[in-house]
């Protein structure tokens, strides 16, 4: 609870009444620090978490053993080294991939994309390893699930188009780093859930709640200022009120 009585905003006479309601809410620092710490731990930033525990004088959450492995797995997936990632996941808990075929398929598909990327980048263009991998690893799984099959077909079509300067959007996304990040974060969630933790960091829910709430409130015709800036830009404090569009969460 910040009991800040230093209210810069009080000096602004033409303040929107909703802004006053916002200012009246005094979030507790403890809660905010909790959300930050929760994010650092569950999304795997161990060094920052350690420093934060020290600097904010809060307890490091019960030494959560998996954090190091989770960081390694994340790094492996981000780097496109899916083999290592799968091995590490199985070291941690073989059940995770066994019980989540969609996740396993997503990882294998990522691996296929990496193979395709590799074999299409050289002029020799030997696509045999990619074909072998697809038929031995992915095809049997795709046979059981129409969604998997669709994904596999799309992925395989990369072989036809690559190398290319421009790709159709649905193919281009397959080569974006975002896909790796998405899969990595799904894996992270699955590991956390398998250990009985909350899969997703609180911070994500909070950010979405903020978006959703503003959208809903505007739909319901609530009397809100035209924009609700967060002040992410330095120097753009409460003084200049709502102006800078730089940090507005838009719908």
């Amino acid at each position: 609870m910040s009991s800040s009585t230093v209210s810069v905003s009080a000096a602004t006479p033409t303040q929107h009444h909703f802004q006053r309601k916002v200012d009246d809410i005094k979030p507790s620092k403890t809660d905010i620090n909790f959300v930050v710490m929760d994010y650092l731990i569950s999304e795997g930033y161990p060094r920052a978490a350690e420093k934060f525990a020290k600097e904010a004088n809060i307890q490091l959450p019960l030494e959560e053993e998996s954090i190091q492995s989770r960081v390694e797995i994340r790094c492996a997936i981000h780097a496109g080294d899916i083999d290592t990632a799968i091995n590490k996941i199985n070291d941690l808990n073989p059940q995770i991939l066994d019980t989540d075929p969609a996740l396993h398929f997503a990882l294998l598909r990522l691996q296929l994309i990496e193979l395709i990327r590799k074999c299409t980048s050289t002029p020799s263009t030997d696509i045999t390893p990619a074909l072998n991998f697809a038929s031995s690893q992915l095809a049997p799984r795709a046979a059981t699930n129409p969604d998997f099959l669709k994904d596999l077909e799309l992925t395989m079509s990369l072989l036809i188009f690559l190398p290319a300067d421009t790709l159709q959007p649905q193919l281009a996304v397959l080569l974006q780093p975002t896909l790796r990040r998405q899969v990595a974060s799904k894996v992270n969630e699955a590991i956390l859930t398998s250990m009985g933790c909350r899969g997703e960091a609180r911070m994500r829910g909070l950010v979405r709640l903020r978006l959703w709430a503003e959208r809903k409130a505007r739909e319901a015709g609530k009397d809100l200022p035209p924009s609700l800036p967060l002040g992410l830009q330095d120097g753009e404090g409460q003084q200049n009120g709502n102006g800078e569009p730089a940090d507005i969460m838009v719908q």
């Binding site: 309601k21 916002v22 503003e214 609700l228 002040g231």
Partner: peptide, 19 residues
Amino acid sequence: SSAALERLVQQTEALVNEL
């Protein structure tokens, strides 16, 4: 005087109250 994250929490609570 307050961080963006703090303001985000404030705004969220105020918006949810409205709703």
